[in-house]
Simulated assay, not measured.
Amino acid sequence: MKSELELRGVQQRFHARGVAGGYITAVDDVSFTLAAEPPQVVSLVGQSGSGKSTIARNVLGLQKPTQGSVLYGGKDIFKLSRAEYDAYRRDVQPVFQDPYAIFNPFYRVDRALWKAVKKFGLTTSRSKGLELIEESLRAVRLEPENVLGRYPHQLSGGQRQRIMLARVHMLRPSFIIADEPVSMLDAQVRKHFLDILLDFQREHGMTTLFITHDLSTVYYLGGEVMVITKGSIVERGPVSTVMHDPSHPYTRLLLDSIPQPDPDDRWTTRIRVDELDEEEEAEKAPATTSGPETPII
Rank of each mutant, 00 (worst) to 15 (best):
E278S: 12
D76R: 09
G18Y: 04
D186Y: 06
T66W: 07
I211D: 09
V227S: 00
P173L: 06
E293S: 14
R172V: 13
H244D: 13
T208H: 03
E293P: 06
T289C: 04
K128N: 14
L142G: 03
D256E: 15
V70M: 00
A112V: 15
M206T: 07
L255N: 03
K284A: 14
G46Q: 09
A287M: 05
K115Q: 15
D29V: 09
D86G: 01
Y107K: 11
G74T: 05
A26E: 01
I271K: 06
P152A: 06
L197D: 10
Q159Y: 02
E37Y: 02
N146H: 13
S290I: 06
S232H: 11
R17H: 09
A20M: 08
E37F: 01
R90D: 02
L113M: 14
E4H: 08
S240W: 07
P144Y: 10
T208P: 08
P181M: 11
R138M: 13
L142R: 03
K52V: 02
L276Y: 13
S183F: 01
Q260R: 15
E283Q: 12
K52M: 06
V225R: 02
R270C: 04
A166W: 04
S247H: 15
T212M: 07
D76A: 09
D195Y: 05
S156P: 00
G21W: 10
Y151R: 01
T268Q: 12
V242L: 08
V109Q: 01
L209H: 09
R270N: 10
H244R: 15
A16L: 13
M184L: 13
K75V: 06
G51A: 08
D91P: 01
K230F: 12
P144G: 10
K191Y: 08
Y151N: 07
L165T: 01
D256M: 06
P295R: 05
V42T: 14
A16W: 06
V19A: 13
R150I: 04
R90V: 03
A139R: 12
P259S: 11
S50A: 15
P259M: 10
T123W: 04
V10Y: 03
D110W: 10
A112T: 15
G22Y: 02
L7T: 03
S240I: 10
D265C: 08
G158C: 03
Y107G: 00
Q40T: 12
N58L: 01
R141I: 00
P286Y: 13
M243S: 05
R150L: 12
V59M: 10
R270Q: 13
L5K: 09
Y85C: 00
M206Q: 11
P249A: 13
L80F: 08
F210R: 05
Y100H: 09
D179Y: 11
E278F: 14
A83P: 00
I177F: 11
